[in-house]
Design a binder for these strands. Structure first.
Lengths: 207, 207
DNA sequence: TGCGTTCGTTAGAAGTTATAACGCAACACG
DNA sequence: CGTGTTGCGTTATAACTTCTAACGAACGCA
């Protein structure tokens, strides 16, 4: 993006190292969870010893925040791509396409999903740009529902229902709460997706 | 249960200390999350220094497992109590009662909820008795749905839908993903609860 | 009263995050 | 092409953490 060509060798090197740090961090998170992420272990894996890593990242929390940002960005991009590729086809389907994209993204790396939608740390507040990406994701979903009936509040309600229902299903599936319970998550997902657009399209405001 | 009267003074003392340990642990978890739980800090809070705690609990993981068990047990008891108190009243309502009980239990201590349904640690497997309590919870929910139509698979489907939808809503609410999004979680919850029993072929009573 | 169990202590090993100070290599500039 | 500044990686250190080992003292039971 920002003139990659006019990078000094040092900037180039820094970017490379930082990328490798994030890469190793993702590996660790995938195998042992975010709470087990160790800067020291990453440094040793990269052949350098301990404090050298602090040249490239301010600390453990900053690195995790960067990974959270990367995860949000990844989901936002996935949503954008599916929304774009689905814009020409069946105008009633974009929500379904987003649903499948979400499930694929979640199954692709469960811990990445949990980094976005998992247990929050009580004190922690995400930086502004991260919540910006979060609202970007929500907007993409909202657009998918605003397409058919150009109705604000109703589209929001549908988008929220999409989000909460699919998240409930995915979250429990990824956490392994369905194991040994004779239930096919993929089938459940399909069933919920089928139920998703509330059939009562008539003005059902009264609550 | 097992003759509390015939406790030796030492057993009595041990039980008291262990209870205080769990109490302090819950305080820490509520304010800083489970990943920040520190045995050392608990010991200092209790006026004794560090390794003394290892007389009462095998280690950090064992303590967390005990808290997870306590959380599961608490939810199971809440469900049992709700189902029992609701057994005499409206036979179509027990699921709704369970739903409100679940939401109350979740809001009462969000981190306790996440200890049960939050981000899992990839390697960790809960001990048998904990998964026993989990299935006990599911059975209570299942009974609430098996009451009206004595139909196995359909009751399971409804119970699972109850679980996944309400968990999705609660999980996102407790994690704060609705903040700044002009949405009332309580209203959303009521709306989802209203949509819950799929009204396809309900012989007794439509909604 | 005596004896054994159990408790809480301190000491220590092996980790972790994170900072400070130092030497050296690499880059940039005259 | 040399020189100087910048930045990288090192080791040392502090302050944590979990957890084990060994010791003395208190407690309970006979």
């Amino acid at each position: 993006m920002a003139d990659t060509g006019t990078q000094t060798p040092r900037e180039r090197y820094r970017a490379h190292i930082r990328a490798e740090i994030r890469e190793r961090a993702w590996e660790q998170i995938a195998t042992a969870g975010a709470s087990a992420l160790s800067l020291n272990a990453i440094a040793k894996q990269m052949g350098m010893s301990g404090p050298a890593l602090y040249r490239y990242c301010a600390g453990r929390d900053e690195l995790i925040t960067e990974l959270v940002r990367e995860a949000y960005r990844s989901l936002a991009d996935t949503f954008h791509a599916t929304a774009a590729s689905e814009s020409g086809t069946d105008p009633a389907a974009p929500a379904a396409a987003l649903a499948h994209a979400l499930r694929g993204w979640a199954l692709d790396d469960p811990q990445r999903y949990f980094l976005v939608y998992g247990t929050p740390v009580p004190g922690y507040h995400a930086p502004d740009d991260v919540s910006g990406i979060a609202s970007e994701i929500m907007t993409t979903l909202l657009d998918a529902y605003a397409a058919s009936p150009p109705d604000g509040p109703e589209a929001l309600r549908r988008a929220l229902t999409f989000w909460t229902r699919l998240h409930g299903l995915l979250s429990l599936e990824l956490a392994g709460h369905f194991t040994g319970m004779d239930v096919d998550p993929a089938l459940m997902f399909a069933a919920e997706l089928d139920d998703l657009p509330p059939r009562r399209r008539d003005p059902h405001r009264g609550h």
